[in-house]
């Protein structure tokens, strides 16, 4: 990452190659169209290259950091209204589609990590899982979700909190969770 900050295009390309499929998958999951996902990815990766956003080790791996940037850019696109066909995440589920082929052991490990996260999400009570998916993958605010589901604002935020806490119990190491 230091090389990228110094303007090393080759170092940047290595990072792009390593995380492109995951980044594109997230952008496509959120925007619902490949064209919109392309715009999001280009915006996010150029932002990373231009060092508008700096890697923060405390936020986890480079992968989750990059995906966080992609997520923010996808939210920007959704809320700007530039993506007209807004996804209804709850209608889509999180099933696999056209998944990129396995390439390396590292990729296999990542798949296992992804399966764990999906399982933790799937194990939530449906009302909690739904609000988290609508917020994270659909890019909706809690106000929009409350309106969509006909529930009070406080209920929606409460479900988000409960759901994240339950996922934390499933995903975070016991010593860290205590």
């Amino acid at each position: 990452m230091q090389l990228i900050r110094k303007g090393d295009a080759r170092a940047f390309e290595v990072v792009v190659e390593r995380h492109m499929s995951a980044a594109f998958g997230l952008a496509y999951r959120m925007t619902g169209t490949r064209a919109a996902a392309e715009d999001v990815i280009q915006d996010a990766l150029l932002s990373l290259w231009r060092a508008n956003t700096r890697y923060d080790r405390t936020r986890g791996s480079v992968r989750t950091w990059i995906l966080g940037i992609v997520h923010n850019r996808a939210i920007d696109a959704l809320r700007r209204g530039s993506v007209h066909d807004r996804r209804r995440a709850s209608d889509e589920g999180i099933e696999e589609r056209f998944e990129a082929p396995d390439r390396t052991d590292v990729e296999v490990a990542r798949r296992e990590e992804a399966v764990e996260v999906r399982s933790a999400l799937a194990e939530l009570p449906p009302d909690q899982g739904k609000v988290i998916e609508l917020a994270y993958f659909g890019g909706f605010t809690h106000v929009e979700i409350a309106d969509m589901l006909g529930e009070p604002l406080g209920t929606i935020k409460g479900r988000m909190r409960l759901g994240l806490n339950k996922m934390r119990g499933s995903l975070v190491a016991p010593e860290a969770a205590s």
Partner: peptide, 25 residues
């Protein structure tokens, strides 16, 4: 809570990007 939210990104299936996207970037 933030590490949990960050991990949600991994739940999206990886997908091959369109040919040419990487070279354009």
């Amino acid at each position: 809570l933030r590490p949990v939210a960050d991990l949600l990104a991994l739940a999206a299936p990886s997908e091959d990007p369109p040919p040419g996207l990487q070279s354009r970037i």
